[in-house]
Amino acid sequence: MDFSFLSDDRYDFLGAFWMNVQLTFWSAIGALILGTVLAAMRVSPVPLMRATSTVYVNVVRNIPLTVIIIMMSQVLYTQLGVQLATRGERGFLATNNFRLAVLGFVLYTACFVAEAIRSGINTVPPGQAEAARAIGLRFTQVLWLIVLPQAFRSVIAPLANVLIALIKNTTIASAIGVAEAALLMNTLVENEADKYMAVFLTIAVGFIILTLPVGLLLGWVAKKAAVKR
């Protein structure tokens, strides 16, 4: 197979995959925060919060990610004029698209994070929260000090799956022109039509290199962190 395109200066493989890494990094942080908030709302004693979280999760996770990402660009930016970068600055469009994509990934991935954490919360025996309430801790303290730390330990493995899915999902950012690996692949497919097989292999191996260590590392962490009862 001919992999000569790898040394072709026109194609910046490292740069493209680096873009996926950056998309993943910021989206993962955002999704973890929003997902935790959604999960906390889901178990809160306030019915309105529970309902809001339930509706959000059930609506957003059922919209195809491609639709969400394109909506970020077409609806949020083009129609509503929401800008996430300063217009006129160098690379405005690239930065704006990158941030819109991250926002889309956060909104979407948070649903899966919330569901994972919620199932984790369910593994914490109710007696833990009860004992915490009995010594006078308030709801937020019970959640933050007692329930979530135990829940997180049991959701590391499911969260690893969410993260791996997110890494692969970042390829959808190409739909709004973010210069990541899948966009590069499209370019290659056009320019190097005779090397399909090699192009696909390169991109696939690139993603495996990104995802495999994540799964292995977090699998190991999950074992270490398990709460002994």
Partner: peptide
């Protein structure tokens, strides 16, 4: 009855 010590 079940102690409910904070397991972590």
């Amino acid at each position: 009855q079940s102690f409910n010590l904070f397991a972590h």
